[in-house]
Design a protein around this nucleic acid. Structure first.
Lengths: 107, 107
DNA sequence: ATGATCGTCAACCATTTGGTTGAATAATGG
DNA sequence: CCATTATTCAACCAAATGGTTGACGATCAT
């Protein structure tokens, strides 16, 4: 599974998008993330693991509480991929992605 | 399934993203879309239907040939959603312009 | 009219996905 | 120590996904 596969697949689920929106406000513990959803804690825990594997959030355990933090940079690849459609004339996407990779390395 | 569900789910598959990249060049018939893939025509046909349901392409039948056309506007909703998470667009536009500059230098 | 080509449909299959429950692990509080 | 809280694990399940094959309806060329 490539990065883009994981990113877009993670974003395809409405529960996961809602979680990301919540984390936009502030970091949250797993239990608090789960609270508004009509779904078991285990289900939310799985969603969070998927988001983490996609790099969209990070999770840090302090004591018995695991804090979830939005990592919006993970959207960069997907966002770039999408923007290459629509605004420009035909372009070499492979070259563009390679170019972006070099740009990111420089940072 | 909301629009965003359908859009992101459609983009989560590498075959479908590759198809979209191909259609960036030009409109194509179903058979020609399928040609480079190591996969049955029926499988590609299904992928195209998924892309069409997500609004990412349109399909028009002329004679026995069905032409597939990229509809990049369908990405707008998803792009907007993603941008609410951050500051990607300016960065990407700069990067894209820089990329285009390198492309022109190479020619 | 016949045969080839274009594309979809229907049935099937294996794998993945998104959910459940109950038990397990680990940290905290009294 | 004991109960409670926070989270994950494991087993299970139904439904969705991504692929196959073979038959089929259209359309085109000879």
């Amino acid at each position: 599974m490539t990065d883009l596969d994981a990113t877009f697949a993670a974003l395809a689920d409405p529960t996961r998008r809602a979680i990301l929106s919540m984390l936009l406000e502030d970091d949250m513990a797993v239990t608090d993330v789960a609270e508004p959803f009509d779904m078991s804690l285990a289900a939310i825990s799985k969603h969070l693991i998927i988001l983490q594997k996609a790099g969209l959030i990070s999770q840090e355990k302090r004591g018995r509480v695991k804090w979830c933090k939005l990592e919006p940079d993970a959207l960069r690849g997907a966002s770039t991929w999408m923007q290459s459609f629509g605004q420009f004339e035909p372009v070499n996407l492979d070259a563009f992605e390679a170019f972006l990779a070099t740009q990111l390395e420089d940072e």
